[in-house]
Computed example of a mutant assay.
Amino acid sequence: MESPHGAAVAADGFGLKGPRGWAFRGVGIEAAPGSLVAIEGPSGSGRTCLLLALTGRMRPSEGRAEVGGLELPRRMAAVRRISALGPVPGVSDLDPALTVAEHLRERALLQRRFDGSLRALLRPRAERAAKARGRVDRALEMAGLDMATLPKQERTAVRDLERLEELRLSVALALIGRPRLLAVDDMDLKLSDADRAEAWALLRTVAGGGTTVLAVCSQAPQDATVVRTTPAQAGDGPGAAGAPAEKSSPMPGTTRAATADGSAEVADAAAGTPGAAAVAQAQAGDAGEPAEATHAAEAMPRGDHKDTTEEGAADALAETGRA
């Protein structure tokens, strides 16, 4: 399988406002293809909203951004096609009752259903199956997930995986679609120091293979391009500025100042329900792309939504990997 070419990420004055105020505002990013970009900040500082906005899952309110040369918010559907979500709580959760093999098989089927050309669908079944196995094997290798080390090998249920193993599985599922941009939320949550180092090594491997990586974290490594978000401050105005972003290594890309002036992150609002919070803050995406269903159900195409609607926001956030 060819190494995917990463998507450059650029933003200036990028912001998203919901009913509770600004989730983030004034964000500036310049990251080259294949960069490892860490979105660093405390919980509630707009990190997840920024991650979802940069992958075309939430509609920004102001500023400009481009992902792989595709302008946001005008080309949100196109950005969703070239990006993939790893673990994002409340958006792309794994089913704890399914096994590792079932998750992989389901994602391969979805990929073939929604991303296959007519020519590919007309190829012999054995050839298509071999290609799908090759994609899965390559994704597992990139994610560093060795099923032989799991308690029941490929028959291990997600509920029995360690936190780092679950992260590797989520990344592998996202990589099956060969995205140009990979987004990972809360990547260092509930990890020991040793596991955190392994998790960052995993994301460096993905970035080194050519895929741009956006990772939300509480503490960024020194070799990442860093975008910092800060909690809302009373009286913050349009020109408010947050802590300057830093880049302390030769990784490609540079980052300018970033701030988050809002009060709510996806996981923190609307009666504790992540989906409800996302609906409250998101605005609908653009032209209708089929969103992936969580368990191999065929997704219905979305219409062209220009206004803020619960239906459009829920559709934009219902994806498990790539739309």
Rank of each mutant, 00 (worst) to 15 (best):
E166N: 10
E166G: 13
E166C: 11
E166T: 12
E166F: 09
L167Y: 05
L167T: 08
R168Q: 12
R168A: 07
L169V: 04
L169M: 03
L169E: 04
L169R: 02
S170K: 04
S170G: 13
S170P: 02
S170Y: 03
S170A: 14
V171F: 00
V171Q: 00
V171T: 05
A172I: 08
A172N: 07
A172T: 09
A172L: 07
A172K: 05
A172H: 06
L173W: 10
L173V: 12
L173D: 09
L173N: 10
A174G: 03
A174T: 06
A174R: 03
A174M: 04
L175I: 11
L175E: 10
L175W: 09
I176R: 03
I176V: 14
I176S: 04
I176Q: 04
I176C: 03
I176N: 05
I176P: 06
G177S: 14
G177C: 12
G177R: 13
G177F: 04
G177M: 06
G177A: 15
R178M: 06
R178H: 07
R178N: 06
R178C: 04
R178P: 01
R178Q: 11
P179C: 03
P179H: 04
P179V: 05
P179K: 02
P179T: 05
R180Y: 03
R180G: 07
R180W: 02
R180S: 11
R180I: 03
L181C: 01
L181Q: 02
L181F: 01
L181T: 00
L181N: 01
L182W: 01
L182M: 01
L182H: 00
L182V: 01
L182E: 01
A183E: 01
A183S: 02
A183W: 00
A183I: 01
A183V: 00
V184H: 00
V184E: 00
D185N: 07
D185R: 07
D185G: 06
D185Y: 06
D185F: 08
D185H: 08
D186P: 04
D186K: 08
D186Y: 05
D186Q: 12
D186S: 13
D186H: 11
M187S: 13
M187A: 15
D188F: 12
D188W: 13
D188N: 14
D188I: 12
D188K: 14
L189R: 15
L189H: 15
L189M: 15
L189D: 15
K190E: 13
K190M: 12
K190N: 14
L191G: 09
L191T: 08
L191S: 08
S192C: 09
S192R: 12
D193S: 15
D193W: 14
D193C: 11
D193H: 15
D193V: 14
D193N: 13
A194D: 08
A194L: 07
D195L: 06
D195E: 14
D195N: 12
R196Y: 09
R196L: 11
R196Q: 13
R196S: 14
